Simulated assay, not measured.
Amino acid sequence: MIDKPLYNTVDIQKRVDDYISQFKEGYFSPLSLMARMTEEIGELAREVNHYYGEKPKKSTEVEKTVEEELGDIIFVLTCFANSLDIDLSQAFNLAMTKFETRDKDRWTRKEDS
């Protein structure tokens, strides 16, 4: 894990938008983006299974990493958010507030040392 992020969500959303905006096609439709997200999650599942599961890679398979697949998911997720004009910082804050309130007593806390 990196101590300091290279990008914040505003930077990520702008960088993806700058990239997509150079093409006439622009963002895919929400349904197509959902399909792409599903594909990327499947690719992540495959990598996790190769590294941590019982299914080793075939010698003919291209070497990919969990990190690479997570990056692909972040890209597609950002395309999805941008196409629907959703601020990922706000979406993240909503999710964290939900988890920090709803699940605040759900798990066993670590003892302070």
Results as ranks from 00 to 15, higher is better:
I12D: 08
M34S: 12
D72V: 00
R102M: 11
A95D: 10
K14E: 12
K57I: 10
D112Q: 09
K58Q: 12
T38V: 10
E68G: 10
V48S: 00
G26C: 04
E67V: 07
N8H: 01
V16M: 06
Y7I: 12
S113R: 10
A35Y: 09
G42Y: 00
P30L: 06
E25T: 11
S21I: 01
K4T: 15
E40R: 13
T65S: 14
G42K: 03
E100A: 02
P5R: 13
D112F: 06
R102A: 09
E69H: 00
R36A: 14
G26N: 14
P30H: 07
I73R: 13
M37Y: 06
V16C: 05
V10D: 12
H50E: 15
E111L: 02
V10W: 08
V76P: 02
Q90C: 11
R36S: 05
K57V: 08
C79G: 04
R102L: 14
E54V: 05
E40P: 03
E61F: 05
A81C: 14
E61I: 04
K104C: 11
A91H: 02
V66N: 04
E68H: 05
V16Y: 06
K58P: 02
E63R: 07
Y7L: 15
V10K: 15
V16G: 07
R102D: 03
Y19W: 08
F28V: 00
L70N: 04
Q13Y: 03
H50R: 14
T101D: 11
D17I: 01
N49A: 10
K64L: 09
